[in-house]
């Protein structure tokens, strides 16, 4: 999966800085290029510069609602797959994200393996649109 020639470009958007930093470290260690964004606006800015393969997007952020950010992402770059992260148990919001084009969702805290599994799945889907 983790072929050095095709490293996954991943955008990580969450207002929990501690979480973003540690998760970015761990994912980088697994050969994923992680760009960190600490709120919705930063995420949108980052997407302007780079075509990411995958975005990990928190559902509840201080500046913007995750669903709103998702809608903007999908408008800017529909080929990018978005995995929603939710610290809130509210699965209804996560499910709403799926209806707006998100690939899947995960509840925090989650197992890294589980997250990687989702990322690779999403990347498989992403590769199809790349070709």
């Amino acid at each position: 999966m983790s072929n050095p020639d095709e490293r996954i470009q991943l955008l990580l958007v969450d207002d929990e800085q501690g979480y973003v930093n540690v998760l970015a470290n761990r994912l980088s260690k697994r050969n994923i290029i992680v760009t960190k964004a600490f709120n919705g606006a930063q995420g949108i800015q980052a997407l302007r510069k780079t075509d990411f393969d995958i975005a990990l997007l928190d559902l509840k952020m201080e500046d913007m609602d995750g669903i709103e950010v998702l809608k903007i992402f999908k408008k800017m770059y529909p080929e990018m797959e978005v995995i929603m992260l939710t610290g809130h148990g509210s699965e209804t919001a996560a499910k709403e994200g799926i209806s707006h084009g998100a690939f899947d969702y995960l509840t925090k805290p989650c197992e890294l393996d589980e997250l990687l599994e989702k990322i690779y799945q999403a990347y498989e889907k992403r590769k199809q649109t790349k070709v």
């Binding site: 540690v22 998760l23 805290p109």
Partner: peptide, 23 residues
């Protein structure tokens, strides 16, 4: 719901940090 949300984020960070150490 409020408590759960407030707890989930720090716990997530703790778990990930532990994971980072083990990495």
């Amino acid at each position: 719901a409020g408590i759960a949300h407030e707890i989930n984020n720090p716990v997530a960070i703790m778990v990930e940090e532990a994971g980072w150490i083990s990495d």
